[in-house]
């Protein structure tokens, strides 16, 4: 936890993200970050005693060197990393798309980076890019996002402008505002229908690795 000096933008983001049901952590980069990530991962899943849980870690270029898996207790977690660009590398081998899909579909937790986040709506945007995919944010029941404080902008329009300034839009991008939800049965809100029912961010304070 960082405490004082939190920017008003980040405070606003946090308030809205949490109001939507998102989980929130802060850290500075360094050893504190890997520990925070490991703790966040642990708290976002339902643990089955005696079984290991699997995480799909597809960080994208910005966090590729963040070796946080070491902070997870190996008797409780198996982490499948996706690294590289073309070709992608899945657990140390050239990626086979169907193996990646199965890994995403069976993982308890997906962990990704982010493109930008919006204070006004409590949203986080993710983009597909060479070396950065979206399945970990969709298929597992829980999703953890590593976000840099500098990626938080004020409004959706600011975020979209930032995306546009970087060139043509990617094949797919998505803006996530809270967990997957439905009110289709008798109007009762239910969390986690198709996408993740639990979403969390770890905000890395200060200047980012961008």
């Amino acid at each position: 936890m960082i405490g004082p000096g939190l920017s008003p933008l980040l405070q606003a983001f946090r308030a809205r993200w949490e109001a939507l049901g998102g989980h929130y952590w802060e850290s500075v980069s360094g050893p504190g970050l890997t520990e925070t990530l490991a703790a966040a991962a642990d708290s976002l899943i339902d643990r089955v005693p005696g079984q290991t849980s699997s995480a799909l870690w597809w960080p994208g270029p910005a966090w590729a060197s963040l070796a946080w898996e070491a902070a997870l207790p190996p008797d409780r977690w198996t982490v499948t990393p996706v690294t590289g660009r073309e070709p992608l590398v899945l657990s140390g081998r050239p990626m086979d798309p169907s193996a990646l899909r199965s890994a995403a579909a069976s993982a308890a937790l997906g962990v990704t980076g982010a493109a930008w986040a919006v204070a006004d709506t409590g949203s986080v945007a993710l983009t597909s890019a060479p070396g950065q995919g979206l399945w970990p944010s969709l298929l597992p029941p829980s999703h953890l996002i590593v976000l840099q404080e500098a990626q938080v902008v004020a409004t959706v329009a600011d975020g979209l402008r930032r995306m546009r300034d970087e060139g043509p839009p990617p094949a797919m991008a998505k803006i996530i505002s809270g967990p997957s939800s439905t009110a289709d049965i008798e109007g009762q809100l239910w969390i986690g229908v198709h996408g993740p029912g639990r979403v969390g961010v770890v905000v890395v304070a200060g200047a980012g690795a961008d």
Partner: peptide, 13 residues
């Protein structure tokens, strides 16, 4: 809601 839970932008295959 200020934004839907998923707003998805697709610009190609």
């Amino acid at each position: 809601q200020r934004l839907s839970a998923y707003t998805t932008l697709i610009s190609g295959p």
